[in-house]
Amino acid sequence: MSVTNTLTPASRPVLEEESRKYFTFVNLIIVLTAATFFELIIIVMPFPSLLLMWGLIGLSLVKFVGVVWWFMHLRWDQILLTLVFLVGLIIATGTVAALMLLFEEGGPEVAEEFQV
C-alpha cells in the first residue's frame, strides 16, 4: 500500500491554465466575501424595505453567478452544461415566483365580515 504521489504531472498548458484559474478563484472569493458583508451591512441601514429586498436579490444573484460561472467551471465548459442547468434553474425560479403570486398576503381572516 504505497502512499506515494501517483499522479502524473500535467502538461505545461494545463499547468499554466490552472495557475491562471488560481488567481481568478482568489479574486472571486474576495468579491463573494465582500458581497456577503455588504448584505449584512445593508440590512441594518435605514433603506426602504423594497429597496433592501432588491438589494439582497441583486447581491445574492452576484454571488450565485460567481460560484456557478467560475467555481463550477461553467465558464470553461461547453455551453450544453449551462443549458441543462438553466432549464432547471429557470423552471424552478418561475415556479417559486408563480407560487409566491398565488398565495396572497395575510392568509385567512376571521370569518366575520361578509360582503355581498
Binding site: 504531472p9 454571488k63 460560484v67 467555481f71
Partner: peptide
C-alpha cells in the same frame, strides 16, 4: 456563510490541483 464560501474556494483549488496532477 463565509465559511461555506471558503470551502467552495478550496474545492475549486482541489479540482485545479487534480488537473495539475498535484496530489498533495
Amino acid at each position: 456563510t463565509f465559511i461555506l464560501l471558503m470551502s467552495s474556494l478550496f474545492m475549486a483549488l482541489a479540482v485545479s490541483a487534480m488537473h495539475k496532477g498535484n496530489l498533495n
